[in-house]
Design a protein around this nucleic acid. Structure first.
Lengths: 413, 413
DNA sequence: GATTTTAGTTCAAGAGTCGTACTTAATGAG
DNA sequence: CTCATTAAGTACGACTCTTGAACTAAAATC
């Protein structure tokens, strides 16, 4: 908690790094301009990061007056961030480099029980260890996304009903220990909520832009929201925040599966949508929605039903926007295949309801990440720590002949 | 944005200050223990703060083995923080000292139009200037709470319909310039949303003390919410979060003053409540509510109207709870005098709507801070900046005979 | 080929924290 | 009463970090 001169360096180095990520390659002079740091300072920081393997220098490009600068860019392929997801029916792994580019993905279906999911996620971690050996790469962090309540220490899972593990209290430690072992202790492993991860991935990986205040809305049978505020999960007092499916919004007479009337879910959940268009459920929510999307061009009644659902969707988004004021809203789940028909009425209602206050409505867009969303967000979490200066970027020292190749640079510990 | 060694000092000094506020007086050795700083560092920081007039040394208390320490405490009465509120029917001022103690309060009713409210709030500021002259006190900050949308820059009011000022775009600058002048430029003045301020006041001085996740709902002509998450204000992307008055909740056909239908405000705002009970507006919102409260015991139709408003209130609280999951909800404004009739139906609906998810409903209670809530929170806002290290604590140099007594210590500029 | 212009580095100064050694002021044992 | 013990607070040198000014480097322009 106390600050030292080293925290200053970490902060300013993070400033340089995130400027490079958000605004692209730049010369030292440009970086000084962008960050507000003195030229001399930028010189030292860049030299430092370069020695650590985080940067690569581009060709010096002349053309203008004066001495041409040597632009530096974030080095891909040296510093990597690992994100894993363990879920009910699949596990996934995503590896990102410092620029946020996806350098590796892998998914496996879970067929057996929940403990086999744990085995599979460990296998994915081993795969990553082998594919990115420590003598050529350095991991900046690893996060595991879990569909359950995660305590702030990020080491303990409180509640994971859908994983149906008996020892949920111990799930955190056991899982993390196993994954950590698979990574041969190269980096500490943390655990996070999957909705938070998905929100993070969608919010600033979809458009490659950093959006600290965003809302991720997933539509399946139920409706759930991941709320990002200043880049962090908004959990509420008990971690139940974002359970927006049962807000009284939309058709207030609609009967909800929970027993109440007027829940938002009863107007925009999968079953409400299918009832509105008069089509049956087939397979997964996304498959059902794809079937509806195929019918929509030819059948006016389907389009009318979707328009109604879209307007109810917009009403709920307006409510959420008034309360949370996000900069961007990303729709996932079954909303994605139906975006063409849902987005316009939803945006109309949203704009309509925000108009009197003169507020700019948030962007509303569709998720493009599919099954990799949570794992991508998990990987992004570790990157964030580097780009915000929470964690120093680990140095990668090229092994100059002697010494163990797999040893991490840790002379500073 | 760049960090320097001075930001380190600011941060660590804030660490010492907030330790003193939150955990009480302490010796330098205890402060070192509490904050994690080195003894030597604490010594320098305490000497610095002491020279600036922020601390006072207590009697050295012996009793244990070893050299006894000299505990220091936050000095009252030197550093002060000013909070002002400008509202439709009243203006208020609160002055807090560094410890958070209230050292001055003042309110005035607004009888004329909105521009006279501005005049009155300036008068309150002048009163404070005279009562706390610059040769004996130093202002750490001043905030004005306004019932309207305030952009994050805290200098611009986007929308303040109920103040009915024509030049709302300029309200921010004009008001702040006038108040700044009344304070003879002793401190920069900032502007904030009134519900946010009231929420902060509840968190430090009222019903939500020690509750990190709470919601404050103020009812006047409009409805506004202040959201506390992990003890901090939740602002949203632009600082507009909590503008819940125009959520589509309650009677969806009700015509709202903003031009839309179905706004929550049109079901539970002051005018909606008065229409529901069939009584006229008299004086201020609180006075109107008091009049209604006097009639309620004898007139069943009034009770019925209040019951309906209470149920609409509960529906909105349910929505907010689903989204935010607060541990406690505090109602202010005109809700306070009518608590006896509104709370029960509101709690009923809230419990009803939360039952299926098995969630424990949040406590719903009434604010006890009354008319001073927002002003108190506004004053608290400036204190927060000091205690978080956002702003350095201004130094107060005792005038040693020569020089202008009213001059601020600004040798560091 | 000299001049101008811009990029990047070197250097000394200034501000911070920290650990160690030292001084100070109390208690307690003999 | 004297002296050891214990803990609080301070002085000081070592170290880290940023910064502005001076300086060097490399291109275009005249």
């Amino acid at each position: 908690m106390p600050a030292t001169t080293e925290s200053v360096r970490r902060h300013n180095a993070a400033l340089v790094l995130s400027s490079l990520r958000l605004r692209g390659p730049a010369t030292r002079a440009q970086l000084a301009e962008r960050t507000g740091l003195a030229k001399a300072t930028v010189g030292v920081i860049v030299a430092d990061l370069d020695a650590g393997g985080a940067l690569s220098e581009e060709e010096t490009r002349a053309g203008a007056r004066g001495r041409p600068g040597r632009p530096v860019r974030l080095a891909g392929s040296v510093h990597l961030s690992l994100g894993l997801e363990i879920n009910v029916d699949y596990v996934a792994a995503v590896v990102l480099d410092l620029t946020g580019a996806v350098v590796h993905t892998s998914t496996l279906p879970v067929t057996g029980d929940a403990s086999s999911a744990q085995t599979l996620v460990v296998r994915l971690a081993q795969e990553v260890t082998e594919r990115f050996p420590a003598d050529r790469h350095v991991l900046v962090g690893a996060h595991v996304a879990v569909p359950g309540l995660v305590r702030r220490t990020e080491r303990e899972v409180l509640w994971a009903p859908n994983l149906a593990l008996h020892g949920t209290r111990r799930l955190g430690s056991d899982l993390l220990d196993a994954v950590g072992e698979a990574l041969t202790g190269r980096v500490p492993v943390q655990i996070s909520n999957d909705a938070n991860c998905a929100a993070l991935a969608e919010a600033f990986h979809g458009q490659a832009r950093d959006v600290p205040d965003a809302l991720y809305l997933t539509g399946t049978v139920g409706i759930g929201a991941g709320i990002l505020h200043e880049g962090r999960l908004f959990g509420g007092a008990d971690g139940f925040a974002g359970e927006v499916g049962h807000m009284p919004v939309g058709d207030l007479d609609a009967q909800c599966g929970c027993g109440l009337r007027g829940c938002w879910e009863a107007s925009v959940g999968l079953h409400a949508m299918l009832a509105a268009v008069g089509l049956p459920e087939v397979g997964t929510p996304v498959r059902s929605a794809e079937q509806v999307a195929r019918r929509a061009p030819d059948e006016p009644s389907v389009r009318e039903g979707l328009e109604l659902v879209g307007r109810h969707l917009g009403a709920g988004l307006a409510t959420l926007t008034q309360v949370l004021d996000p900069e961007r809203i990303v729709l996932g789940g079954y909303f994605v295949p139906l975006g063409e028909w849902l987005l316009e009425p939803a945006r109309d209602v949203l704009a309509e309801r925000l108009a009197p206050s003169g507020r700019r409505p948030p962007d509303v867009g569709l998720s493009g990440l599919g099954i990799l969303a949570a794992a991508t967000g998990a990987a992004e979490l570790s990157l964030r720590e580097v780009f915000t200066g929470t964690t120093p970027l680990p140095r990668f020292v090229r092994d100059s002949g002697a010494g163990h190749p797999g040893r991490r640079a840790d002379e500073s510990g």
